[in-house]
Nucleic acid binder design. Structure first.
Length: 553
RNA sequence: GCGCCUGUAGCUCAGUUGGAUAGAGCAACGGACUUCUAAUCCGUGGGUCAGGGGUUCGAAUCCCUUCAGGCGCGCCA
């Protein structure tokens, strides 16, 4: 459709001596009211400024060049200030159905990625405690973003960055050490700035089971590395397990420590120094991030000779690009937003474009129960873990709810609503439609109705699909590929739940008013074919969300 | 003090990147199961798009400003 319009408009532009249209300026919109056609475009109006002509005149020029006669267009109108309204022949909708049902898994898969290599780095929680609910939102967003990019033809890698360097690791090891001593009856004044969560006590019990009492009263310095390793390994193991239960897996678990071990931090700083982006001052080494728009320069090596976390992050991002990724997506908590400008500056200093890095910020999750906030105190080490949430409401509901908001706006997550098997819960609404559709085919089979296309046979005669409701349904189905492209281009996975809701609601309405398995064989066949397509697209979209599409509920 | 984000129906939020009469869900009220799943559907009410100014054919969307809320501003990670 877009190609056709562009083809009609371009010659007009050439005669006026103007450059060809950028593709984005020919936009097809689905109007709100049916009188405005199946599609509409505002090209005429956006051109009017360049051409210095009235929009309606341009519109009629464009319309004259549209190949109405032998195309999928039934009618073209000019309306309002210069909208071009396009009415599509039913055949066009039928073609969409065939496209879907002949390649159910391929439908919606696009090629805009063109095999470009993209890395999505997400969760990356410090291995100092179990994942909490906020990490869950990041996990769902990252995983689905990766699914979307894959569907759009990108070559995607999922990575978890393990912050296993720095003094927080020593703190972790010491925390375990103190809990262990406590367990063996020592009187310990547990230090304030250490990890005091309940999980640390449990870890001490496990440690004792494996190591016995041999470390009782041993000096901390002597045994710390072992305690640190044990704690980090166990906690990371738990994180992996929780993520697996949540349906999230990674291609690569990248250790921060490995960067230090390869001297990557030093190498990166040297490279930046050679390029003139690093200087010494006040005994420290600085990265001149102000060159690239940051508000002040940043220390990379402190006066005491120790490199900063940011220095490691520079090395890490250099490493990512060295591994051949064209684009890198980082998913961070929104409280890190102040960190974005310096990271962008770093990326540019490393010789990449700003657009080679995209940071998705994840806002807070407010956990509610029955509309009331669940008290969470990180200071006391008490928080609701991701695992507890999954165990209570299930993976599907959790994933879906995490994705029903734009990631940069805060999310209220009500445990009671997520569990509710009712219309208050958006997950069931969508899943129910899939189950309902599945059930139709089951009944069809019981009645001996043959759906040949399901076994690779020809589609039935689709001409009975003529009603406005059917057209609306088919148009929505046809929108799905465009939706995925939008999600990928704007890094916005939340559009999928909204799309699904609209598709499913249109279907439920249709289902209530029309009998799919009716008296008339031809109508039944055509409607079953439509139902097949609806089920395919719902299943497809749910698969991208990582939410189960049930046959029965 | 500076910076980023947010402000849309009673509540929670969308709004296709500047388009036509601003949309959903929940909550409220009234209806629909002898039928392929009522976890559904149909209908009703509900708005100064935080306020003000500007840009233009056209603004919830872009610019300026005021107000309100959240977050961030370390040689921490």
């Amino acid at each position: 459709m877009i190609d056709m319009l562009t083809a009609a408009v371009s010659p007009l532009l050439e005669t006026e001596g103007l450059p060809a249209l950028p593709p984005s300026s020919v936009e097809l919109v689905i109007p709100k009211t049916p009188e405005h056609g199946d599609y509409a475009t505002n090209v005429a109006m956006s051109l009017s400024r360049h051409l210095k002509r009235k929009p309606r005149d341009i519109a009629s020029e464009v319309v004259k060049r549209l190949p109405v006669a032998d195309s999928i267009l039934a009618k073209v109108d000019i309306a309002g200030p210069g909208f071009i309204n396009l009415f599509v022949k039913p055949d066009a909708w039928h073609r969409i159905l065939m496209e879907i049902n002949q390649h159910p898994d391929g439908f919606g898969r696009g090629t805009i990625g063109n095999g470009k290599r993209v890395q999505v780095e997400f969760v990356s929680a410090n291995p100092t405690g179990p994942l909490h609910i906020g990490h869950g939102r990041g996990a769902a967003t990252g995983d689905v973003m990766a699914n979307i990019l894959e569907a759009c033809g990108f070559d995607v890698q999922r990575e978890y960055y393990i912050n296993d360097a720095g003094n927080q690791m020593d703190t972790l090891g010491a925390s375990l050490y103190y809990r262990y001593q406590e367990l063996l009856g020592e009187k310990i004044d547990f230090p304030d700035n250490h990890y005091r969560g309940e999980y640390m006590k449990e870890l001490a019990v496990t440690f004792r089971e494996e190591a016995g009492d041999q470390y009782l009263r041993k000096p901390l310095q002597e045994v710390l590395p072992m305690f640190t390793k044990f704690a980090a390994d166990s906690i990371l193991g738990g994180i992996r397990e929780d993520l697996a239960v949540f349906g999230v897996s990674f291609d690569e678990w990248f250790s921060e420590r490995s960067l230090h071990e390869q001297d990557a931090v030093t190498t990166t700083i040297t490279a930046l120094r050679t390029a003139g982006h690093v200087y010494d001052s006040e005994g420290a080494t600085w990265f001149r991030s102000t060159t690239f728009g940051d508000e002040k320069d940043r220390v990379v090596i402190r006066a005491n000779g120790v490199s900063t976390y940011f220095a490691a992050d520079l090395a890490y991002h250099k490493n990512k690009y060295d591994r051949g990724f064209d684009t890198v997506i980082d998913i961070w908590g929104a409280d890190h937003h102040g960190y974005v400008p310096r990271m962008m500056a770093g990326v540019e200093a490393l010789g990449r474009k700003r657009t080679d890095l995209h940071v998705i910020l994840i806002q807070l999750v407010n956990l509610l129960r029955g509309g009331k906030p669940v008290a969470m105190s990180t200071r006391a080490g008490e928080f609701v873990t991701l695992r507890e949430v999954i165990d209570e409401v299930g993976k599907d509901a959790a994933r879906y709810i995490f994705l029903t908001r734009r990631s940069d706006s805060p999310l209220d997550f009500d445990l009671d609503v997520a569990k509710m098997q009712s219309n208050e819960n958006p997950v069931y609404y969508v899943q129910y439609a899939h189950a309902r559709l599945s059930s139709v085919f089951e009944v069809a089979q019981e009645r001996g109705i043959v759906c040949g296309w399901l076994q690779g046979g020809e589609p039935p005669d689709l001409s009975p699909l003529r009603s406005a409701q059917e057209a609306a349904l088919m148009r929505l189905l046809g929108e799905y590929p465009q939706l995925l492209t939008n999600c990928a281009r704007n890094y916005e996975p939340h559009l999928i739940p909204y799309y699904l809701h609209e598709l499913v609601s249109t279907f439920h309405s249709y289902y209530n008013q029309n009998r799919i398995l009716g008296e008339d064989v031809d109508i039944s066949q055509a409607r079953l074919y439509l139902a097949t397509a609806v089920r395919n697209v719902i299943g497809n979209a749910l698969a991208i969300l990582g939410v189960h599409a049930p046959e029965k509920m």
